[in-house]
Computed example of a mutant assay.
Amino acid sequence: MGAAQSSADEFVREPLGVQERITADGSSPWPVEAGRYRLVAARACPWANRIVITRRLLGLEPVLSMGIAGPLHDERSWRFHNDPGNVDPVLGIEYLRTAYEKAVPGYDKGVTVPAMVEVASGKVVTNAYRELEFDLSTQWTALHRAGAPDLWPVEHRDEIAAISDEVFHDVNNGVYKCGFAKGQRSYEKAYDALFARLDALSSRLSTQRYLVGDTITQADIRLWVTLVRFDAAYHGHFKCNRQKLTELPVLWAYARDLFQTPGFGDTIDFAQIKQHYYGVHTEINPTGIVPEGPDVSGWLTEHGRESLGGRPFGRGTPPGPPPAGEQVPPLT
């Protein structure tokens, strides 16, 4: 996501700065339109990863281009340091902050990913990731690929929202509460809540393949982006070390199942994830040394979750391979 702040001993996430909507129903000044916007993401960031996966599953690549900020940044914000000349080839900017300042002169809030940028003006339209992932599923339907899954089935929306809220507070944000705690008591409170929630999720997933219903929903995407980063970053770097993910049999199998599902593992670059967490959070890792491990080859091993049934894409179909220029390195 990006910038964060702490209050007293507890970690508090900064409010989002440009909370607009992109809609097809006329409810906002920003209409859904093919080619009008560019999604700026980062391979390292779990919040951005949620939107990248959603875009992949819905097949929006031809109508919504994507820029990838590099894993390293400084106080000036996310930077396109992996692109030729350190500049996004479509937006022509080096730092994402430029797009925020075009939208809001004197912008003084967090410069975060994901961000939707209007290509013609170079202005950030929104960085409201929760609304964006819902709107991509429900407002962009005319531009979905044939066979796109329903990630927000109407009959399960209340349940998806409830589980997602628990996952956000205790897991997605919970690992950050552990990592950026400024006091022992705050750390232990977040640690206990994190692993209590993981235990509850493990129990739930022991008898069903996905979190809600028998298909992949947005709830699975929200949980998975934290699980896939757990051993590479949160276990050691954020002191979330009761167990590794690989030592939690149900969640490890669930995470592998999704990793091997088109649209999930093909968005993950473990090298960039580690470069970001260990290279940017200097208050936690002042040496900037990036660990060599863990071994990630296990992500491709059999998971056995098919025995629980379920239809990954419901009545839909898997997405095709990632477009040229969006592939991630294969696991080694």
Rank of each mutant, 00 (worst) to 15 (best):
V63R: 03
L308R: 04
I160K: 10
H303E: 05
Q260M: 09
G263P: 05
P29A: 00
F230I: 03
H73C: 07
E10T: 11
V175K: 07
S65H: 04
L72W: 06
A69D: 10
Y95G: 00
H237G: 02
H169M: 13
A41K: 03
A48Y: 02
C178S: 10
G2W: 04
S121G: 01
L57N: 12
N86R: 15
H235I: 14
R222T: 04
A3S: 14
K189C: 03
G67D: 02
I68P: 01
A4N: 13
L223P: 06
G92D: 13
G26N: 13
R315K: 09
E326F: 10
T246I: 12
H303F: 09
H144P: 06
G298I: 14
A120Y: 05
G17E: 09
E75Y: 02
F270P: 11
I163F: 05
P323L: 14
N173L: 07
T138K: 03
E159A: 14
S77G: 15
P329A: 14
R256K: 10
A115H: 06
Y107E: 01
V87C: 02
Q260W: 07
R56F: 09
P89E: 01
E292S: 14
A200C: 11
N173M: 08
L96S: 06
A219I: 14
C240K: 01
W30M: 02
V280F: 00
P330A: 15
V111A: 07
F134L: 15
V12D: 02
E131H: 13
I284V: 05
L227E: 08
G316I: 01
E283H: 15
Q327E: 13
L201T: 09
V117I: 08
L136N: 12
E247Y: 01
G147E: 15
S6A: 15
K102M: 00
L331F: 12
G298K: 03
Q19N: 05
R209G: 13
D214Y: 04
V212I: 14
K274W: 02
T301W: 01
G265V: 08
W47R: 07
W30I: 13
H237E: 06
G310L: 05
Q208S: 00
T141V: 03
N241Y: 05
P294V: 07
L211E: 10
A193F: 03
Q19E: 11
D9L: 15
S203P: 14
Q327N: 03
G314C: 06
F264D: 02
Y277A: 05
R21P: 06
W299S: 04
S6N: 14
D266N: 07
Y191C: 10
L211K: 00
S186W: 08
G298E: 06
Y95R: 03
R256I: 03
L245T: 09
S206I: 07
L72V: 15
Y37E: 04
K274P: 05
L308S: 01
P294A: 09
F180R: 05
I51Y: 00
N285W: 06
V125W: 04
E75S: 00
P153R: 08
A115Q: 14
D74A: 01
G106Y: 07
